[in-house]
């Protein structure tokens, strides 16, 4: 164990190639961001210190998940042709990922709202780039009803 600790690399680099399953949807990030929004609401409405401590912990987790989903969209889904057609996407994803970090450390509802708005802007580009037709499997009609 000790030896492994000494030998373990100090720096992590990404050489990641995803297995391109092709399923991508900004909704994943939005659901996590909505959780952050609601948690902040409940945090601010509560006087229970234990509840507030739990809320902070869970919000940090959700903000991390939102960041992960944005990172996957940006680095795995959006391809050079998308970037060429919608050059704003790089900055949108970059800012949204940074906003996730802000929400992680904030209990200001405005920060969570602004993250939701940023994810919606990413979703607009995702829709223009093909949206669910390009990246999701159709649901059975009965399941949709």
């Amino acid at each position: 164990m000790f030896l492994t600790k000494i030998l373990a690399p100090k720096t992590v680099a990404r050489a990641h190639c995803d297995l391109p399953c092709g399923v991508y949807d900004p909704e994943q990030a939005r659901i996590e961001a909505e959780s952050c929004y609601k948690i902040i609401e409940k945090y601010n409405a509560s006087n229970d210190e234990v509840f507030r401590a739990r809320a902070i912990g869970i919000k940090e987790e959700r903000a991390d998940l939102a960041k992960h989903h944005i990172d996957v969209l940006w680095s795995d889904y959006f391809k050079p042709e998308h970037v060429q057609k919608y050059p704003e996407i790089t900055e949108l994803c970059w800012k949204a990922a940074k906003q996730c970090s802000k929400v992680k450390g904030s209990v200001d509802i405005a920060d969570a709202k602004s993250l939701l708005d940023m994810i919606d802007k990413i979703a607009d580009v995702w829709t223009k780039a093909g949206g669910p037709q390009a990246t999701r499997m159709p649901k059975a009609v009965a399941a949709r009803a």
């Binding site: 190639c17 297995l19 391109p20 680095s75 795995d76 959006f78 050079p80 970037v83």
Partner: peptide, 13 residues
């Protein structure tokens, strides 16, 4: 460039 062009984030991006 990544070794897997279809799945890589590299100078093309």
């Amino acid at each position: 460039l990544g070794d897997r062009p279809d799945a890589s984030t590299d100078s093309r991006v």
